[in-house]
């Protein structure tokens, strides 16, 4: 295992470097936009004087480079905007402060994350199960009706725009059939049943659409795997068909599935933008979109970096799992 430990340490170091470079790039891009965050905080009427004051308060009067360094310092040591009684405290790790929402970005992200995570993880589990079992079934019944159906479903799923399917689902199941709630979020800690009930529709819609690519992946990989010699060996040993398929066949397909799944989930955790919008859920994606609308640059930068971090982390986890799942892959 020491190989694995070194591997993770090396990758974490690399992750820090990538995040630094990325944060600088994101910072430069968003702060080069013509929007002036100070204008939002300067009140009305916005005299040049008060604008200047707001700028100073938000520490926007410094050079971009200085601001970036302040941002980095805030992550480690926290930041304080202004002085005296009016001072605003942003504790470490401080990823910026949203003046329009009067909250530290870190707090905002943490408050929105459970919603996005609920949507993402639930949907991901659903689409993993559905996608893999449909793909498996299609591979085993290659060319028959079930296969055609699964492949057709996958094709439709890949091609459908998610907001359209989401709205349709709301219309059909929410309004016409009146089966499930169509919006709102109940925290898991308040009522697990209500939590799940409110999430059913977004889960199913997201899962249905994402399952498509898992059907195709599982089917293709499984067909390839079942042609390998060691599958014939398993049959020649006297293994029954179920054992051959699940223990020997699916085992080999695990690696590509885990890879794609990790990356998809990592991406989705950073914000299921369209789904949250369609189902009016106050998740990370919704936070990002509304912040863009309000030119709340601090939040935009924070959420963007957070999403990027999740993707990089997902990559790392996938690589570690890859080594664990495939004995031929070393972490040297």
């Amino acid at each position: 295992m020491p190989d694995l430990v070194w591997f993770v340490i090396r990758r974490l170091l690399a992750t820090v470097l990538v995040m630094l470079a990325l944060s600088l790039a994101v910072y430069l891009i968003f702060y080069a936009l013509p929007a002036d965050p100070a204008r939002l905080g300067c009140g009305k009427p916005c005299t040049p004087d008060r604008l200047e004051q707001a700028r100073h308060f938000m520490q926007l009067d410094q050079s971009t480079m200085q601001q970036y360094l302040q941002f980095l310092k805030g992550i480690v040591a926290g930041r304080t905007f202004g002085e005296g009684a009016a001072a605003v405290q942003c504790n470490a790790p401080c990823f910026g402060y949203s003046f329009p929402l009067a909250r530290p970005v870190t707090t905002l992200i943490l408050s929105r994350l459970p919603i996005t995570a609920s949507i993402a993880i639930g949907a991901a589990v659903l689409w993993l199960i559905a996608g893999v079992s449909l793909g498996l079934g299609a591979a085993l019944r290659r060319g028959r009706l079930f296969d055609r159906f699964a492949v057709g479903f996958a094709l439709v799923g890949v091609a459908s725009p998610s907001f359209l399917v989401g709205l349709l689902a709301i219309l059909v199941f929410g309004f016409w059939l009146n089966m499930v709630p169509v919006n709102g979020y109940v925290p898991l800690t308040d009522s697990p049943v209500d939590w799940a009930w409110h999430l059913v529709l977004p889960w199913v819609v997201l899962a249905a659409l994402n399952a498509a690519s898992y059907i195709r992946l599982t089917r293709a990989q499984m067909l390839e795997e079942l042609n390998l010699d060691h599958i014939t060996t398993a049959r020649a040993k006297g293994a029954g068909e179920g054992r051959v398929v699940l223990l020997h066949g699916l085992r080999g397909v695990l690696v590509p599935i885990v890879t794609i799944f990790g990356l998809d989930l990592g991406g989705l955790l950073g914000g299921a933008i369209l789904t949250e919008k369609v189902f009016s859920m106050q998740g990370l994606g919704e936070l990002l979109i509304s912040s863009v609308g309000q030119l709340d640059v601090a939040v935009v930068v924070g959420v963007t970096l957070f999403s990027a971090f999740l993707v990089i982390l997902a990559n790392l986890v996938v690589d570690v799992l890859h080594g664990v799942l495939d004995p031929r892959v070393g972490h040297a």
């Binding site: 060691h230 080999g252 004995p327």
Partner: peptide, 11 residues
């Protein structure tokens, strides 16, 4: 089989 590497399950 002829090719023992592919005849054995790598996992």
């Amino acid at each position: 089989f002829q090719d023992a590497l592919s005849a054995l399950n790598p996992y």
